[in-house]
Simulated assay, not measured.
Amino acid sequence: MQRMIAPEIATWPETDPHLLGSVCSSCSATVFPVQDLCPRCSRPDMNDVELPRRGTVVAWTTQGFLPGAPYLGDESPKTFTPFGVGLVQLGDIIRVEARLTENDPAKLKFGMDVELTMIPLGTDPEGHEVLTFAFQPVDAQE
């Protein structure tokens, strides 16, 4: 069985899941993840919104060392594989920091188109595969 690391952040297990954010009906600020109070105007006028599935990488790096606690991945310092991390612009709505499925610096490009996906992160104490969200490059042939 699979589960999301935080079920409230996405519409998974839908076939084409979306990240869930909030938009303020007073000042139009959009945030991720869902929040009760607007960080811009402090009003409690937030409404849930599905964020776009596709975006553009505006900044990236690679994580070359095992993250510290409370990281839930199954890797050890010996089995850890570096992964890409990016700042992804979702339309003209919001920028989201996320894991990237690509970790090769030669293949990561500023401005590259990416799409939301869910990837395995680790296994919880009950033996369930834990998923997290990530963005994968969009095939240029589409």
Rank of each mutant, 00 (worst) to 15 (best):
T30S: 11
T79M: 00
D92F: 01
F135E: 08
L66N: 02
L116R: 08
L121P: 00
V49L: 11
L131V: 03
G55I: 07
L51E: 11
P67F: 01
Q89P: 05
R40K: 14
G64H: 11
A29G: 04
D139R: 10
A6E: 13
F80C: 01
E50C: 14
E14Q: 15
E102F: 00
E129H: 02
F83G: 07
V96R: 08
G21Y: 06
R40M: 13
Q89K: 15
H128W: 10
G84H: 01
S25E: 14
I94H: 11
D48C: 03
V31E: 12
M118V: 13
T62F: 00
V114H: 04
P44G: 11
P44Q: 07
G21V: 06
R43V: 05
D113V: 02
E75H: 12
T132Y: 01
E142W: 06
D104A: 05
T123H: 03
E102R: 04
E142A: 13
E115P: 08
C24G: 12
L72W: 08
G122K: 06
D113H: 13
Q63V: 15
R40Q: 15
P105K: 04
Q141P: 00
T62G: 01
V49R: 11
L100E: 05
P39M: 06
V85A: 05
M46K: 07
P137N: 05
L20R: 15
